[in-house]
Amino acid sequence: MEDISSLAKELKAHLPWHQARILFLAQFILGLMRGRSCNLYRVAEEFQSKAQEESSYCRIKRFFEKYTYCYEQLGKLILHWLNLTSYTLCMDRTNWQFGSQHINYLVVSIAWQGASIPIVWTCLDKSGGNSNADERIAIMKRVLKLIPAKKIDGLLADREFIGHEWFDWLDKQGIVCRLRIKDNTSVMGSGGKPIKAVQLFRNIKLYQVVTWHSKRKVSGVSLYIGARRSVDGLLIVVATKKPETMVEDYYKRWSIETLFGCLKSRGFDLESTHMTNLDRMDKLMGILALAFTWCLLVGHWSYGDAKQLPLNKHGRPAKALFRLGLDILRRVLKNSCAKSDQVNFQMLLHVLSRT
């Protein structure tokens, strides 16, 4: 119970919630970590309470059914914990199906230490389909309430996130973007005639990076364009500014794929939740964002930068910083203290408060 009250105190310092809701939030975050599952009954089993598991489960259901909170407050808390001066953002979707119901998240996250932290999200009301320009603009307007455009180093997104209205809006907001386009995207050539983007780079060699330093019209908007050829094919990227590093910068987009993997099979087993209501799924992602941030910060505090992790033969770390942090937190929570590491819960909590 001391762990719950200590975490609740940290949360209460930043969230203007009723004390009972703060205590519930602390319970739920710690239950997520202990159980490594978003199945609500599994979380209820991990509640540190004198109440029966069924009572804890009913309490969880009431929270998601009836309680409404401000997602902007959670975003501000995450930014406070990260304490960064600038931000590289990633936008992507993740979706799966439970029975006949489709869960389809559109997420904007902050790339940091090889992973990506959710900062704004929405569960789309569509059956696994792509987002449209209105949905992307709406979610980015929420981002700009938290992070001004001048502090955004770049917005990274894959081939789904294209189109004139979207490109034009980003350009007018002054948001630096690194967006991948399809090979057959029409690009205005030097002679004023449209050609396919792939034709600009038809002579590019394996592992070579080629950047055009004069802007081209892409979907009616003037953008820089560059490409890199790898064994997997041709990667074509467009950008508003800084063409020199546009292709290199784009590769940081993979961090949001790491996020989705950590939220699912490699971390909190998000797909095990049986909820399908859009509002309730948005509430769940908010709590996951707090838990994920804490795990990543603990991993960084304990092991240093992601680039310093020892690599396996396949060239990747055996475990990401998130998973290392989650393992430390679970070990401490389940054993009261990790004597072998001389780490206790208060030390892990201080990672958030920076004391």
Rank of each mutant, 00 (worst) to 15 (best):
L206Q: 11
V176E: 12
R178M: 12
H164G: 08
G163R: 03
G191N: 15
R202K: 15
K196M: 12
G191H: 13
Q173A: 07
S214H: 12
R202M: 12
A149E: 13
T185L: 07
S214V: 13
L206S: 10
N203S: 14
C177V: 13
Q173S: 03
R180A: 10
N184P: 02
V176I: 14
G174C: 10
Q199W: 08
D168F: 06
G189A: 11
G226F: 02
A227G: 00
V198W: 04
D153R: 14
N203T: 13
A157N: 05
V218E: 05
K205G: 06
Q173R: 06
R216F: 15
G191W: 03
C177L: 11
D168W: 10
Q199H: 14
W166T: 01
G163Q: 07
L200E: 07
V209H: 06
T211Q: 05
G191I: 02
A149G: 05
E160S: 04
A149V: 13
H164W: 08
G191L: 14
H213V: 08
H164R: 15
V187A: 06
E160V: 09
F167V: 02
G174D: 06
K172E: 11
K217F: 03
K215V: 12
G191T: 07
Q208T: 03
I162Q: 15
A197P: 02
F201T: 03
S219E: 09
F161G: 02
S219M: 07
S186M: 06
A157M: 01
L156N: 02
W212C: 07
S219F: 15
K196D: 08
D183W: 10
N184I: 10
F167L: 12
D158C: 04
L223F: 02
I152E: 03
R178H: 10
A197K: 01
V198N: 06
W166I: 05
R228E: 11
G163W: 03
Q199T: 14
E160K: 06
V210Y: 04
G189H: 12
H164C: 11
G226H: 01
Q208K: 09
K172S: 14
I195A: 05
R228D: 02
K215F: 09
K215I: 09
S190V: 09
A157F: 00
H213D: 10
I225S: 01
V176W: 01
P194L: 10
G163F: 02
